[in-house]
Amino acid sequence: MNNENRLREEICWLGASLFQRGYTVGSAGNISARLDDGWLITPTDACLGRLDPAKIAKVNSKGEWISGDKPSKTLLLHRQIYDRNASVNGVVHTHSTNLVNLTLQGVWSTPSILPPLTPYQVMKVGRIPLIDYDRPGSQAVAAQIAELANQVNGVMLERLGPVIWGKTVSSACYALEELEETAKLWMQSDKKLSPLPDSAVSELCEVFSIQW
């Protein structure tokens, strides 16, 4: 199986896993992966729980649709991340309940939607900033994300959901799951949990060569 076929299978497996566990519902969300000659991205209005490897859209390095079903309307957003950060090979966007609810009730801060609560949140996800609401597929949102693509591992779109990127599609999914579970902890506590001390965050950043 060549690299493209493996990536198609990986996208389908991860999409089904996210859907089955309620990280996304209906036809919400999208997943993409970098190829040597472009990108793969889930089709527009596709259910992540019922993806067909053969129907995943392929676009060339210019962002032109060349095969599969019509690509997600968030294609520009994904492309901006890949163009700005050469280390990114996978991007995942869902409408995860606890994270969307967090934006409706009020995030911890605009630069970081959640305080540093757990070591794995700090290590695997990092600081996630809030992007103010705009319609799905907005070019203005894509431009804002492009400016952050090398600074953080993801963003939170107000009222829409997280966009997380990583070195692989799987690692992006795992980080998204960690973020959603951290939001769940925060919301269930009525936002009363104490953040990790600054010294603990600094130690994690130093030991694991990460940035908060």
Rank of each mutant, 00 (worst) to 15 (best):
V155H: 10
I210M: 01
I113S: 04
N2F: 01
A28R: 13
K124H: 14
L157N: 08
L157H: 10
C173H: 09
S189G: 05
N85F: 11
L7R: 12
L104V: 11
V59R: 07
I31E: 03
A149E: 11
E64W: 09
I41T: 08
G22F: 15
R50A: 11
A143G: 14
L51H: 00
A142R: 11
H93E: 10
G29L: 14
S194F: 09
L35M: 01
N150S: 14
L18M: 11
S109M: 01
G38D: 05
A200P: 03
V163C: 15
I81V: 15
Q211L: 00
D37I: 02
L114P: 02
E178D: 12
N2Q: 03
Q144D: 13
E177G: 04
Y133M: 06
S96H: 08
G29W: 12
E180P: 07
P162F: 07
G38K: 08
G106V: 04
G166D: 02
W39Q: 01
N98M: 15
N60G: 12
V107D: 00
E64R: 14
A149I: 14
K167D: 01
T94D: 03
T44V: 07
Q20C: 09
G106N: 02
A172P: 12
L196H: 05
I11R: 07
G63A: 05
Y82I: 10
L35R: 03
L102D: 00
S32P: 10
T42S: 04
G161M: 13
E158C: 13
L179N: 07
